[in-house]
Design a protein around this nucleic acid. Structure first.
Length: 398
DNA sequence: TCTGGGGTCCTAGGACCC
DNA sequence: TCTGGGGTCCTAGGACCC
């Protein structure tokens, strides 16, 4: 008989803030808030000391400063966080041959059939937590359950330094005890819609038909919720999905009124995007832009053509057309973004006319420039237009 | 309070074809 | 004369997550 499946979901507690406290002993026991730079930044992580002041992630930095004026505000240091993340992931790999990294601070471990090696479920979870703490100085919260969906919810059930085990026989009671907001995949809007239909908790939802949920939320979300409240894995985390899109966006310190400046910024974005295109060796036939106006209204435009994007100039031309189409003259712009969708791996099929038209050559030149930049560090190889842009986008000129 | 940056998936409607 | 049904591809926007 094959052993029953069980999974760990492991979540690093207040990860960025914890790394800062680890690296700077003087920050320990104090409210540490890692946030975006500039006055329009938001909190990305804060220590539990800061949470006591009501600070939480995604909160505008200005608000956090009001709530916690003596907080230690730090910019994020991603390379360092990735380093620590790697250490933790290496420990995961000692416990399971099937580790699914979900982001920099969380992963699923398929622990099925590992009792002989690590002992019963609870023992192995405690062992893992202890090893992570002694090996990296970081604390984690672990959720254990028969499927990934429940394990994911369980890891958030008791934080920090938590361990929540949901046995098969307790799944129903566990799911029904959950506040709606703790159900992964149910956000504010969905909650409001459910509540206005009289469905205010998971237990009530578990007692209505799938069709009712579908009529309220649509086909896919209705089906998802019907499964979710029963603890049936909706399959969100079944496999590592292939990358489908890449994008870059920028929120400005001050809203921008000048179309030429927007075009220059779009040029920068298209440069960064094409670097990533080369780095990840992908291309796409669909490009898109995103504009967020001063009133937070957000619009987007996309265009698909037969030929995949070839080089940065090609990309910029396509993006520029979209910007011209979508831009509303006179409206202040707070964010501009650009992306590639439906990306495909590898170089696009070699067509004869590519060579003849010089398209292929252009791309090769750019790839060489990209490799040089990578070696020498960015900003070394800079196009004339970018030099202008940097002058233009200097703060306070807007 | 005044709202980042990177993603994924879904929906509704339009165009086009058979 | 006015109107099918299904399928595919594309677009714009919304919801959600870390």
């Amino acid at each position: 008989m094959s052993p029953p499946p069980y999974f760990f979901h492991v979540d690093l507690d207040a990860f960025f803030a914890s790394v800062e406290q680890l690296d700077h002993p003087e920050y320990r026991g104090k409210p540490v808030i890692v946030s975006g730079m500039g006055k329009r930044g938001v909190v990305s992580t804060c220590s539990y000391e800061a949470r006591r002041f009501g600070v939480h992630s995604a909160m505008p930095k200005l608000k956090a400063m009001q709530l916690c004026p003596h907080g230690i505000f730090l910019p994020s240091n991603m390379p360092r966080y990735y380093e620590k993340s790697k250490e933790v992931m290496e420990i995961f790999c000692r416990y399971s041959s099937d580790v699914q990294r979900m982001s920099v601070d969380e992963a699923f471990l398929d622990m099925t059939g590992t009792e002989k090696l690590f002992g019963p479920v609870e023992e192995s979870a405690r062992k893992l937590k202890k090893e992570i703490f002694s090996g990296t100085g970081l604390s984690v919260s672990v959720g254990v359950a028969q499927n990934k969906y429940i394990a994911k919810i369980a890891s958030g059930f008791s934080k920090p330094d938590g361990l929540t085990i949901v046995l098969d026989k307790d799944v129903k009671a566990f799911m029904e005890s959950l506040p709606l907001k703790d159900l992964w995949g149910v956000g504010k809007k969905t909650r409001e819609r459910l509540e206005s239909a009289g469905l205010k908790d998971t237990k009530t939802i578990a007692n209505v038909s799938e069709n009712l949920l579908k009529s309220l939320l649509g086909e896919a979300s209705g089906h998802f919720l019907y499964s979710a409240v029963r603890g049936i894995d909706p399959g969100f985390f079944s496999n590592v999905p292939a990358e489908k899109s890449i994008s870059n966006e920028k929120t400005f310190e001050h809203d921008i009124y000048d179309y030429d400046i927007l075009e220059n910024i779009l040029f920068d974005l298209s440069q960064e995007l094409s670097y990533r295109m080369f780095e990840e060796n992908v291309t796409s036939r669909t490009v898109n832009i995103k504009i967020r106006y001063g009133d937070f209204r957000t619009v987007s435009a996309q265009a698909t053509v037969d030929d995949p994007v070839n080089d940065s100039q090609d990309l910029f031309q396509r993006l520029k057309m979209l910007l011209a189409k979508k831009y509303e003259k006179g409206n202040p712009v707070r964010l501009l973004g650009a992306g590639l969708q439906n990306i495909t791996q590898g170089r696009f099929p070699a067509q004869k006319e590519l060579f003849e038209s010089g398209r292929e050559k252009k791309r090769s030149v750019e790839e060489a420039v990209y490799n040089l930049t990578k070696k020498m560090g960015k900003k070394i190889v800079t196009k004339a237009r970018q030099l202008n842009t940097h002058a233009d986008t200097d703060d306070k000129k807007y």
